[in-house]
Write a protein that binds this DNA or RNA. Structure first.
Lengths: 336, 336
DNA sequence: CTGAAAGCGCTTACAG
DNA sequence: CTGAAAGCGCTTACAG
């Protein structure tokens, strides 16, 4: 089955290919093509089931009407929701989204960037991995619009949209203290990424203000360890520190592992321990008891990052770097 | 920043663009180009940071090395896991995957197919919506390789890979009966899609064999209703049928709604009611009690469907239609 | 109001 | 062993 091209339409409609191209792209009127010809061309295109070749037009115009979205893990509900909103927003302005997961692997992230570059995407929305700064510099050098989300590099001149992580954990920690908790632990990962540091700092500062900060009450998990390994570390940590009466998990996968740890240990929530986790998740709503969370403003982040990207794409030179913080929401459930 | 093309390399290396193209594509030796020239070209390409234009080469060769994956909802864990495995498999053979969600909407599904056609993907893996049969016929007419997953149309000549849905619910129902359950309900949706019908038939047949089938013990939910509406229907149904002592949910989102319904009603699992759901989910592992499931053979399905697609892509004419059933696994947890 | 022609960056059959 | 040239399907500046 041969592909139908504008040439076929031109022949069939007995006009030139330029005329066909103008009509197909809705520029018929602007080019003062007669309504009769416009109608004719449209009918023929319809009849032959013409489908324009995106590839040819991309090659010609240098535009692909597509953006690349690189997240940490598309099967994590937070990123899946984010991707869904970004895709919808992009569709509204007739853009396609190519999305892919880094698995928190620097080498893979760089490959993905290269592969999206080859696919000629017009802009990038990225949750960078720890050592991706240089790769992002490359994108900037290539004049590619970039917006970072969820995290960023403190000294890099790139727009980003992230949740106000500091404020989120600061107020969650305050909330735990108001409820009477005295020995509040925190569970973080070892990544040292800025968003995780800020979350921990919010926690630390809130406790320091009350003079009850105790740095031995922090556990650092390995992102790449198996879930069982994480659960084991958690059990070890809580057994070693029986005085802990509340815990703040700095990401949903840690919270999920934590709940399994508590179940194994026979801890009851909130009688034995109060729990708050970052990032909402189905399981937190469904758990007995339901778990309080600091929910990310997913929709705000998605919409703002597309906006920033678009303004860069429209006018790269006039564009100003924006660093946007969006407030999260403390959702109080039964676990405190 | 101007794009570097093979022309630039040719100029710099003082050879023809054909030579450059051959070297870049690893055909240097085959074309008997001297090692010195090969080396030279490679060095220049490296030095200038040459990145081939996928678009130009696609236009020329008609190949894009990409496949389209259309699932129901990428934020559902089942499809997310499936997508992840398919992406990895595709990457092994140097293919890219474009994935997108239908939201169980026929019109959107057709749009997605059209948009992937325009992007010139070389093959399709699709979880079709109810009325997508004609669109799939179109793909077949266009000689596009297609593999359906999760569900299919009984009389359409297309390869598919699905779980053995009948066997899965048949054996789950048997298992419930062995445990002494007498009034076993089933919760399905209204879609009437073949995979859902087969799941229900496995349930029905198992009960009929024992002569205890009661058709009033079936509830049909609306996929497009809000979660709260689904929960309300479930509560109404179980209140109206207090003799029910076990329930089989035919998809994970129904099971999740069911658990919330039981919590609202104060039902205890498994004392008041035994529960088995199709499709595994984090929440089922984490729930108190943990919930037994019929897990899909996700990896098997993903790998097999890529295989089938590849054999169609390699030789469309010689290819035979294959209809593959993969067995699921009953994972027994605390809910029965 | 419409058409001929150049060119986007590649690949490959052909010529030498 | 290497090069000149055609052509993939479009868009658009230019000419008339």
């Amino acid at each position: 089955m041969k592909r139908i091209t504008i040439k076929d339409i031109a022949t069939e409609a007995q006009v030139s290919i330029s005329t066909v191209s103008f009509v197909i792209n809705g520029k018929g009127e602007k080019m003062a093509i007669s309504p009769a010809v416009i109608k004719k061309v449209q009918e023929v295109a319809q009849k032959l089931h013409y489908r324009p070749s995106m590839i040819a037009s991309s090659l010609r115009t240098g535009k692909t009407r597509s953006i690349g979205l690189i997240v940490e893990d598309i099967s994590n509900q937070f990123f899946a929701d984010l991707a869904r909103v970004i895709e919808d927003e992009a569709k509204n302005i007739d853009y396609r989204v190519f999305y892919c997961s880094t698995g928190d692997d620097d080498a893979r992230s760089e490959e993905l960037v290269q592969s999206l570059l080859q696919a000629n995407v017009e802009g990038f929305i990225i949750t960078p991995t720890k050592n991706l700064e240089k790769t992002i510099d490359l994108l900037l050098k290539l004049q590619k619009p970039v917006v970072l989300i969820d995290r960023y590099f403190a000294h890099q001149k790139v727009s980003h949209v992230v949740m106000d992580n500091y404020e989120g954990s600061y107020s969650a920690t305050k909330f735990l203290m108001e409820k009477g908790c005295k020995n509040i632990a925190v569970v973080n990962n070892k990544s040292q990424m800025i968003q995780m540091k800020l979350r921990e700092k919010g926690y630390t500062d809130a406790l320091k203000e009350e003079g009850i900060y105790d740095k031995s009450l922090a556990l650092y998990l390995d992102y790449h360890a198996s879930e069982q390994r994480r659960i084991d570390s958690l059990i070890g940590f809580f057994k070693a520190n029986p005085r802990i009466d509340a815990v703040l998990f700095l990401a949903n996968y840690m919270g999920l592992a934590g709940l399994q740890a508590f179940r194994n240990m026979g801890y009851r929530i909130p009688e034995n321990i109060s729990v708050i986790s970052f990032d909402d998740h189905d399981s937190f709503k469904l758990h007995t008891p339901t778990i309080s969370v600091i929910a990310q403003p997913i929709e705000d982040i998605a919409i703002k990052s597309i906006q920033l990207l678009m303004s860069q794409m429209t006018d790269f030179d006039a564009f100003k770097i924006e660093k946007v913080l969006k407030k999260g929401t403390l959702i109080v459930r039964e676990s405190v």
